[in-house]
Each structure stands twice: as C-alpha cells, then as structure tokens.
C-alpha cells in the first residue's frame, strides 16, 4: 500500500489531470465558437456556405484526432514554422488546443444541428414574417432554442473532448495525464495496474459531474412548447 501511495508524492497526478482540464477548457471554447459558425453555415440558405460547412464536417470528423494533432506539430509547426508563441512547452500546448478545437468543432456543429432540428419550422417562419433576415433570425430565435435542445449532445462532445485531451500526448504535451502515466509505468513496473486504475478513476471523477450537469441543464433549460 505504501508502495502505491508513494506515487502520489513522487508524481503530481492532480497537476497532470489539471493540464487536461486546461486543454479541455480552451479547446471547448474554440470548438464551440467554430462549431456554431459551422452550424450556421450548414443551415444557411446560401448553397455555397452550406457546402463549406458540410465539407469541413465530413473531412475533419472522419480524420483521426491523432493525425490532426500530429499534423499540427509536425507539419504546421515543424514544416511550415507555425509558432503559437509562449515558449517551447507552451507552443505545443497551444497547438494541441488548436487541434482539439478544430476536431471537436465538427462534432459541436452536428450537435447544434440536431438542436436546430428540435426547433419547429414555424419559429423560423415567424421570425422571417416580422422582417428578420437570416442572421438575426438565427441569432435571436433559432440558435437560442437550438442550444437548449442540444445540451445533451453538446455534453457528450465535451465528455469526449475531456478524454480526447490525452491525445495531446502525441503532440508533445508531456505534462498532461497520459504522458505522465506513461512515465510512471516506465519506472514503476511493480504497480502497473494500480497506476492505470488511478488515472482511469481520475478521468471518471472529472467526467461524471459533466454528465450530471448536462442532464440537469437540459431539463432546467428545456424550451416548453
């Protein structure tokens, strides 16, 4: 037991998980903004806008996250010299956030689109009938209701994002949880299984409240019709 407990003094496990939470936080904001824009493109009556949104979703959603993050580090940063600043570690951290945001935006877009489908067509017609153009109607009438109808699928995207933040490991973010876990496994072969279980438990503890929160919010914010 003491043997196991020693890993908590030798390694900063909560600190490593905190890095994943930070990655998730910033990537979630990026994905939400980009995903909302993509959703508006996809529901736009302008065919070329809709085509841009659809292409983005089909390409990014079907590309493995590992490839997107590696592309950021090896191609954008390594080959093309894209530097997001903030020093060596911080640059990789930001590149990972960018990759996570770009990838999850495709899923956010689809979650919002499923929310748009919960809004009756009559809402859009009424908005148009009082003279609102597409953008104001989307912003003031459709999206506020769509977001409320999309809380559960958006929560699922967030949960996936939390866990997918470990893929930042391939993007040279060596301080996040799965990298730290790998380091620990290398030196502490005597307690491999407890180390795995510790990190698994860490993620479960982070994710469970998100699930509870989205269920609660989806009930509280449901649009009554």
């Amino acid at each position: 037991m003491d043997n196991y407990l020693s890993i908590f003094t030798e390694y900063n496990i909560p600190g490593a998980l905190w890095v994943n939470i930070q990655l998730t936080f910033f990537a979630a904001i990026g994905a939400l903004v980009l995903g909302t824009i993509l959703a508006m493109l996809r529901i736009s009556p302008v065919a070329s806008f809709a085509a841009i949104g659809t292409s983005y979703v089909n390409i990014i959603r079907n590309t493995p996250l590992t490839i997107i993050i590696l592309f950021g580090v090896l191609a954008l940063n390594g080959q093309l010299g894209l530097n997001l600043g903030g020093g060596f570690q911080e640059n990789f951290f930001r590149l990972a956030i960018m990759g996570l945001a770009i990838y999850h935006a495709a899923f956010v877009c689809e979650a919002i689109r499923s929310g748009v489908n919960t809004v009756p067509l009559g809402q859009a017609e009424a908005a148009r009938a009082i003279g609102l153009a597409f953008m104001p109607a989307a912003r003031m009438v459709i999206l506020p209701q769509a977001f409320r109808g999309a809380i559960v699928p958006l929560g699922n995207v967030l949960i996936a994002l939390i866990k997918n933040s470990t893929v930042a490991a391939v993007g040279s973010v060596s301080i996040e949880a799965s990298s730290v876990m790998k380091d620990m496994l290398d030196v502490r072969a005597d307690i491999v299984i407890p180390i795995f279980l510790t990190f698994a438990a860490g993620f479960v503890i982070i994710v469970i409240p998100v699930g509870l929160l989205t269920t609660w919010l989806s009930k509280k914010l449901a649009v009554s019709r």
Partner: peptide, 24 residues
Amino acid sequence: EGKALARLRADVGMVFQSFNLFAH
C-alpha cells in the same frame, strides 16, 4: 431574397395557424 425581402415582410403582418410565438 435578402434585406429588401426582409424589409417588405416587415410591412406584412402574418398570423399562423399554430401561433408560432417565440417559445423562449
């Protein structure tokens, strides 16, 4: 299409069978 259509619609009031009040 566009803004001109939106402007003209503002001059035409519409009442629907299913009310379509903004639910939120």
